[in-house]
Nucleic acid binder design. Sequence first.
DNA 1: CGGTACGATGGAATCGTTTCCATAGTGGAC
DNA 2: GTCCACTATGGAAACGATTCCATCGTACCG
Lengths: 342, 342
Amino acid sequence: MAPANVTIKDVAAAAGVGVATVSRVLSGTGSVAPATRERVLAVAKELHYRPSALGRSLKTQRTGSVGLVIPDVSDPFCAEFTAGVLACARNLGEHVTLDVSHDEPAVEAEIVDRMAEQRVDGIIAMPARGAPATWRAVTRMGLPVVFAGRSVDELPEIPVVLADEAGGVRSVVEYLVGLGHRRIAFLGGRAEVTSMRLREEAFRLTLADLGVSVDGDLVVRARPTRDNAYAAAASLFMRRPDLTAIVASSHQLGEATVLAARELTLRIPADLSVVVIDDVPWAELCDPPLTVVARPARDMGYRACEMLLRAPDRRENRPVVLPTELVVRSSCAPVRAVRGAR
Amino acid sequence: MAPANVTIKDVAAAAGVGVATVSRVLSGTGSVAPATRERVLAVAKELHYRPSALGRSLKTQRTGSVGLVIPDVSDPFCAEFTAGVLACARNLGEHVTLDVSHDEPAVEAEIVDRMAEQRVDGIIAMPARGAPATWRAVTRMGLPVVFAGRSVDELPEIPVVLADEAGGVRSVVEYLVGLGHRRIAFLGGRAEVTSMRLREEAFRLTLADLGVSVDGDLVVRARPTRDNAYAAAASLFMRRPDLTAIVASSHQLGEATVLAARELTLRIPADLSVVVIDDVPWAELCDPPLTVVARPARDMGYRACEMLLRAPDRRENRPVVLPTELVVRSSCAPVRAVRGAR
DNA sequence: CGGTACGATGGAATCGTTTCCATAGTGGAC
DNA sequence: GTCCACTATGGAAACGATTCCATCGTACCG
């Protein structure tokens, strides 16, 4: 009734054949007499035989599983990215082992070590800063790795899938300037995070390109905690009531921006145009719906997985950059003459 | 420099000891002379030895991994639930293999079969309806399973972690009735989904208990697609302009409710009090912030994982029900005399 | 009719661990 | 001085698959 573990030997014995024959039948390789094949299949079903992936993997040296390391499942971008990885993995017949690093290098190292012991076929990661040693160790043992969303400067040899952060910011700034805005604030994240730095740089650069002088006072940075971001946004609004638009550099900072504006009864977009980088579901639900720069989270996951599993030999040496999209909704308006005037 | 795979034999040879000794040193069992231990450790580090979990698992018959099957990673509830599972798994030294079923029984069956082959130590699932056969097959082979968020009537023997749906709805209804509402609508989901049915039943029951007659016309059902939900909400508002409050039975339905109300320029909470079942980040960001019933997603995940791994022998036969919480924010107001009057 | 080629099959080695069991050495108790 | 108990150690047998290689018919060709 409840046979603990039925192995290939049991099947072979019950069918009166050798284990090699059973293996051939089940894996479809080699040639087997039709009658034998039927019998083996019948017996296997009868006994509820499930081949053990452990035995197989030990022999074949492939586990059919990929490791995925992200900072946080609850983050909508990470979740969507994960969905993409899962979709691709399924198509390619792999399964996914997931773990979260909370962006702590020590935790990340532990996870990656474990995955290496687990002999995953490869690892996809949004790497935390500051732990190149672990990654070096793991690639040295021949384990394929693909980074996504962030690159690590110390590890240029690891293939990476990125979003076109700079392009996204550029289109935002062009859009806002086109609406007549000149005093545009930028609420950024910590400069140590590559993508944050990229966004800020693109902001300054584009403004300069458009001949709008960059007011350093309008570029502020905040840690992505709720309180810190809120405080940064609120103090910016108090200090510079003359600003007409703001670019929030992450969805957390976007939340803070909207909340702070609401608290100070700044009307969006009448008093203040707002753009958030990263699309999240609530951006559309917000009143008014928020104009955002959307990164193709799902595609990035799919693509990263594909890069990992297909042709791990001929790696892309240059980052694969996927386009971002400026999703125009209703949080930006042309600057009003009275405010926009010098 | 780049040794493909260094095994325990290589370490043993290099250290001039037997493989058994190396195993003892690395696993910390048995007794080993301190000098030998040092030497083995040194050699192992030198060679970058990583024990293969495959070999170990094959021998010990434990993989140290748990399978997690959810309908959709992008859903905030599922994501938070997953975070709880990951947290518990890490504490207990396990890792997690994740896959998504999209609530399709066929996909679910495929995933579960695969996990069984993979010899996971146990499976946590938010089961799709209508595939008890797979679960039966898998439990029969001795694989522990814990359900979460939903129970399957046909499988009462499988332990399950639930949220107190009924209690949550009850407190909502009491709250609304306490504010003077009498014409309260209920926007529910498909009746085949257990939790949806539970919520609707609790709604009717509580109303009856409080002596408020249930207006069948105010209880509507929608599929959780965006359009369908929106249409249901909008047509309800058009048909019954006299209703003063609405309970949306899922976060998707909540979105639709808010959107439809906004479209029809119903002011929340002045014209309409709204409660949503399930807390999602944007509920707090909404204007006004939404009063919701929060399920303890993270705790549910943690608890499910704990149940799975701790004492799989003495199972809870009755569902573990975790409390829900009525989070009062600003989307409900006392009914105004002019509208509340009969 | 002999040789050959091929289809069908089973035995056995292998993958990398853990762990049981046997053995050798050693110090102490009698 | 014997013997015992105990520590330290290595050999070898699993665990459950895959796969190479050898074997055995048999049909076909010359």
